[in-house]
Simulated assay, not measured.
Amino acid sequence: MDAGEEGPPLETHLLVQLPHVRRWLAPFILTCSVYFLLWIPEDQPSWVSALVKSLPVLCLVIFLGAVTSSSSYARLLQGALVCSAVGDACLIWPEAFLYGMAAFALGHLLYIRAFGLTPLQPALLLLVLPALLGYFSLLLPHLEPDMAPAVASYGLILSIMLWRGLARGRSARWGALLFTISDSVLALDTFALTVPHARLVTMATYYAAQLLITLSALRSPEIKAN
């Protein structure tokens, strides 16, 4: 079956049927809970807050290594997750924002490589690109001139990641969509206007997105035995 074809939620079946898969997800759930319970103020940047923010994503790297075989897809996802963790840490400090954006851009490129170009589904791209242009036109008046090229480049990479995630289907589809929502809320709140509960929305959708993309690696031939 092609990745984009409809079918039963295989990832959910594997979570239900294989206890060791659920067990290896426990650290991710625990560290997410710690992040939201501590809710360290953003005006108190520190290596502790960077670690607390990055740990859930790093737990997903370990999860993939523990429950999947060393397929190229799983390795690319692990690389993207590591880049995301670096980006998480960088965004703790406002002066490192561009470094964080670069780390996430590299992560998205790895996701694009993992999702592949089959099935191509160009019609999806024709839906994504107008949305990108409309959103960027909203942000552009609020961007500093030296920030506009970086934000535009990141937005293009994010849009391609969304296109390929939607085309791949299953949990990757929803993960890519939630990642786009997370980044869109973050950019809107950072550059344009104050979004109510922006941090909560951004982080909740972000962690859910990373989890769903990670779960897209769960395919029966690639799952390790207990």
Rank of each mutant, 00 (worst) to 15 (best):
R168C: 01
I112K: 05
S184R: 03
M161Y: 02
C83M: 14
P141Q: 12
P130N: 03
A152K: 01
I112D: 06
G134W: 06
V128G: 00
L125K: 00
L158Q: 09
A102Q: 05
P141D: 07
P119Y: 05
P122M: 06
C90R: 03
I160E: 04
A74Y: 13
M161Q: 10
W174G: 13
R173F: 11
F115M: 14
I181Y: 09
S84D: 00
I181R: 04
L124K: 06
S153G: 15
A74K: 12
D189M: 07
A123C: 00
S70F: 14
L156P: 09
L158R: 07
L125C: 04
D88Y: 03
F179N: 03
L124T: 12
I112V: 15
A176E: 03
I112A: 09
I181K: 01
H142T: 10
F97N: 08
A176D: 04
L139W: 07
W163K: 03
T190I: 02
S137Y: 06
G100D: 11
C83H: 07
L127D: 00
M147D: 11
G155T: 02
S84Q: 01
M101Q: 07
P141H: 12
L156A: 15
P119I: 06
C90S: 12
V82N: 05
S159N: 01
L98I: 15
S159M: 04
E144G: 11
H142K: 13
L177N: 00
R113F: 12
V185G: 10
C90L: 10
V82T: 11
E144H: 14
F115Q: 13
E144T: 04
L133H: 10
H108I: 07
P119K: 10
L109D: 02
L139G: 05
G116F: 03
F97V: 11
L139I: 06
